[in-house]
Design a protein around this nucleic acid. Structure first.
Lengths: 255, 255
DNA sequence: GCTTACAGGCTTGTATACAAGTTTGTCGCC
DNA sequence: GGCGACAAACTTGTATACAAGCCTGTAAGC
């Protein structure tokens, strides 16, 4: 592959993993071309590659956008991660000491970042843990898959995560590594399953499907089918689903 | 995505899955463009997408080639499949009757194709089983991943599989479905693990890394380590390592 | 005869020009 | 003042032209 193209691809992907690009961000071809000092052709290449990897999308003649996974896609992504990562731990017969050491160091770094309140690297490290774990098998294919998947879940967290429970996540990671060290990989797999479940449960999948949600809620909090409002207001309105007839009722501006 | 591009991509991928395109096949841009009635631009798009999916590769200014996975990559691919597919079965709490029915029908089709000696559709169906299984979870992401993976293992089988044990594979599938029907998903996962292991064990990973292998063995059965020269150019001596001074000297010609 | 050098053809790599569509800003009309 | 139509700017979509490299066939030199 062309190195320049690979660079662009990698730069954008790692920026997403690091939480430095928000979901929904527009990525103009010309802008990126100028930024990287290449022609649009290359940028398009990189974008199309990223599209097949599921991290950007093109909107015809409007531009490339970082994906904003729907609630459904979010569920799929977490389920996929659960399948793969527990499967990985089950497949692992023994953990090489070197890997164990590396993972322990990683968890230590997580704790440090949390202690220091370094929000930026914190999120990055929490996602990176899973990628490091995939390295344990030494399987590049699997690592790549998990990397792409982690990018998506990172974006999902940005969209749907009301409160970040970094300490808890890091603690989970610690427990998983401990189980691995004890050689109890079945336990590690179970813990991983629970961990991913917890992260998923911590999401508010009823909220923020689009940037207009908050605005829309402000204007008419009543009954817009499908997408729920999501400003800091309380939203968990058990909401009788979708009144097709009564659209646009700006009446109740409750709480 | 552009529909035309998607078509090309899909056409090539499914042709690979069906075993109708051999590993190492050259896919010329212009030729494909003519075939599909589009311009090279579109073909390049499709090719680059397929490259990120791991089924084709580009050789600079020579053309696009269907990948010929190395022994190492073959091992990785099977390991990845094992991780994902057993993980999938473990994650499956219960099997919807509809899915079970569909899988049973699929296995029946496998048996029919084997009985009829239809080599062509046989291989296709055997790979398709796993894709169908992924559908069981109703997770498109996972299905896509397994599809790409299956494409690779199909190519691997074409390269390294000395004898195809279609009956055995189909039998394994049958047992897996039976375990699923009995609700014993842990057993199904174990059977799947063994099944993939058997298929992998049935490969001859020491052979056929390239089409010249046979030829090379014929000419010098002794010990060629690296790549063979396509022209009769004198090269590295495997015995005494590389004489840096004697370059371009056609002295020893017994190789 | 064997090797090497070279030229021609063929294929991909890359940039650019233009086409087509979207968004936004502005003006005129009611 | 509000609404709608129009126009201009901007963005991607697509094709094409040309550059650059690889492979092969041929001929000259040792």
């Amino acid at each position: 592959m062309n190195p320049a193209t690979a660079n662009i691809e990698e730069a954008i992907l790692s920026a997403i993993l690091a939480g430095r690009i928000n979901p929904g961000t527009r990525l103009g071809e010309q802008k990126l071309a100028d930024l990287f000092g290449v022609s649009r052709t290359r940028v398009r290449e990189a974008m199309m590659r990223l599209e097949t990897r599921g991290v950007v999308q093109v909107s015809a003649r409007r531009g490339w956008y970082v994906v904003e996974p729907s609630a459904e896609e979010a569920r799929e992504a977490f389920q996929t991660r659960r399948v793969i990562e527990t499967g990985l731990l089950h497949a692992l017969r023994e953990v090489p000491p070197q890997v164990l050491k590396s993972l322990k160091e990683h968890v230590a770094m997580e704790r440090d970042a949390i202690g220091a309140g370094d929000v930026h690297s914190r999120a990055c490290l929490l996602g990176d843990f899973h990628i490091h774990l995939a390295d344990a098998l030494g399987n590049r294919m699997l690592t790549e898959i998990i990397r792409d998947l982690t990018a998506r879940t990172t974006l999902i967290s940005m969209l749907y995560q009301p409160t970040e429970k970094a300490e808890e996540s890091s603690h989970d990671h610690e427990d998983i590594v401990a189980a691995m060290e004890a050689g109890d990989l079945a336990l590690a797999a179970r813990l991983m399953d629970e961990h991913i479940g917890k992260v998923e449960a911590g999401l508010d999948l009823t909220a923020k499907p689009d940037p207009l949600a908050g605005l829309r809620a402000l204007l008419s909090p009543a009954a817009f089918a499908g997408n729920a409002p999501s400003v800091p207001h309380t939203h968990d309105h058990p909401q009788d689903h979708s009144h097709p007839h009564s659209h646009g009722h700006p009446a109740t501006k409750e709480d």
